[in-house]
């Protein structure tokens, strides 16, 4: 059996006064593409953030790479990459400048990210434009490329298909499948089960802060 990368047991997470996760349990193994499905507000995002120690469980146990992310966040974060709803990009800079900044921080190799961008359909000319002038879809691709170019064992993607056109979605699927084949673990949140079901090795349905595994059919 593949190595267990993520283990969540009976976790409750409170966001302010709102229990975003209620007794949630969840696993992910090496090389898997685990898809979390469920309506908006069901707790998918919180589950991803939990794995990075960005939210702290009120009760229950979280283990990622053998450690508790709330206690040793940097160990977990160094080996993971995360793409949230918000593109974490500097709007005033061009896509290339954003990549160069992250390269200077030793987060990724700009050349690799540029290759990924090429693959997702963002050409050289668009890379030289300020991010705020790009269309939603292209911005999303730049954000995806920065997140995916980071050499990380655990890839956490929150609605990665949002804002992409059908072609872009298909291209992204290919990239994700390749990542998993290369031994990375991908956890992906999506409210569109038809889309992500295709690449999933396992699926969870998250309802009211409680994930349940969907039996493979």
């Amino acid at each position: 059996m593949a190595r267990r990368v993520v283990q969540v047991r009976n976790v409750t997470v409170l966001l302010g006064r709102f229990p975003a996760l209620a007794r949630a349990s969840f696993d992910a193994f090496e090389g898997e593409v685990v898809v979390l499905e469920g309506p908006n507000g069901s707790g998918k995002t919180t589950l991803l953030r939990l794995l990075l120690g960005l939210v702290v469980p009120a009760e229950g146990e979280v283990v990622v790479f053998g450690v508790d992310p709330a206690r040793m966040p940097s160990a977990v974060r160094r080996a993971s990459t995360y793409l949230g709803h918000q593109a974490m990009l500097y709007d005033e800079l061009t896509a290339d400048e954003n990549l160069a900044f992250f390269e200077r921080l030793r987060v990724l190799h700009a050349a690799q990210a540029a290759q990924l961008l090429e693959r997702l359909g963002v050409d050289r000319r668009e890379r030289g434009r300020q991010v705020r002038h790009l269309s939603q879809g292209q911005r999303r691709k730049v954000a995806l490329a920065t997140a995916l170019a980071k050499p990380a064992e655990l890839v956490l993607l929150d609605e990665p298909h949002a804002a992409l056109d059908p072609e872009g979605k298909a291209l992204l699927d290919d990239v994700i499948v390749d990542l998993a084949r290369g031994g990375r673990t991908v956890v992906l949140a999506s409210h569109d089960p038809g889309r992500s079901g295709r690449i999933a090795t396992r699926r969870y349905r998250v309802v009211a802060g409680h994930p349940r595994e969907v039996p493979a059919c």
Binding site: Y82, G84, M88, D91, L105
Partner: peptide, 10 residues
């Protein structure tokens, strides 16, 4: 850029 979180994550 939501960089507070970004820098923490990186």
């Amino acid at each position: 850029a939501n960089a507070g979180e970004l820098l923490r994550l990186l």
